[in-house]
Computed example of a mutant assay.
Amino acid sequence: MKNKTIDYILRATWQAVSRMYNEEANKYDATMATGFALLSIDREEGTPSTALGPRMGMEATSLTRTLKSMEEKGLIIRKKNPEDGRGVLIYLTDFGKEKRELSKNTVLRFNESVRKHISEEKLNNFMEVAEIINELIQNKDIFNQTENSNDEIAKP
């Protein structure tokens, strides 16, 4: 991957991970988005539907489709938020909690496998690089930089 751009490597890797998770989820008549939603919903307290999208990094229309499918499969139920009558809380059903454990174990297996093949030092470096990239994006430091700020990015 020597002559590949950073964004290409990130995208290709994420697509491979996504494909892997979707292939695994497909065995259980699910999707990666469903598994991620199951892991993002609080097991006991439920989660406001408005908080779920940002937590998952999903657009509202995709999230609505995912939640509708999950509700149809009996994984979640929606209840009015008692503190805010306009809002909705999403709760896992017992079946949803069961499938959540399956999703959790799948993610843990992936992490365990990666950790077996990559040293702790390399993983820490990867995490640090990913964190810096996220900060640069969140701070809008990629395309809104002054010429002098390029020097600061290169510093360790």
Rank of each mutant, 00 (worst) to 15 (best):
K80P: 14
K73E: 14
N81A: 06
E59N: 12
S49H: 02
E59M: 13
T64W: 05
A60P: 07
D84K: 10
G53C: 04
T61N: 11
T64A: 13
S62T: 15
E83R: 07
A51S: 10
M58S: 12
N81T: 06
M70G: 02
P82N: 08
K79E: 15
A60I: 12
A60R: 09
S49M: 10
E71W: 05
E71G: 08
T66A: 10
T66Q: 04
G53A: 15
A60W: 08
L75P: 03
P82Y: 09
R78M: 13
M56P: 01
G57F: 12
M56A: 11
T66S: 08
P82C: 08
I76D: 06
D84I: 09
E72I: 01
E72A: 09
S62E: 15
M58H: 05
L63H: 02
L67S: 00
I77K: 00
S49V: 09
R78C: 08
E72Y: 01
K73M: 07
A51F: 07
G53H: 02
R65Y: 12
E59T: 13
K80C: 07
E59F: 09
I76W: 01
S69W: 06
N81I: 01
S69L: 07
R78S: 15
L75W: 11
A51Q: 03
E71V: 00
L67T: 06
K68C: 04
G57L: 12
E72N: 10
R65I: 09
M70A: 01
S49N: 07
T66P: 01
A51N: 08
L75N: 04
R65L: 12
N81M: 00
G74W: 06
G74K: 05
M70N: 00
T50E: 05
R78E: 15
R65V: 10
A60S: 12
A60N: 10
T50Q: 07
A51R: 08
R78Y: 06
N81F: 00
G85I: 11
I77L: 11
L63A: 03
R55V: 03
T66V: 15
M58N: 02
K73N: 13
K79L: 14
E71N: 12
G85E: 14
G85H: 10
E59I: 15
K79I: 08
K73P: 02
I77Y: 02
E72Q: 12
T61G: 00
E59Y: 12
P54C: 14
P82M: 08
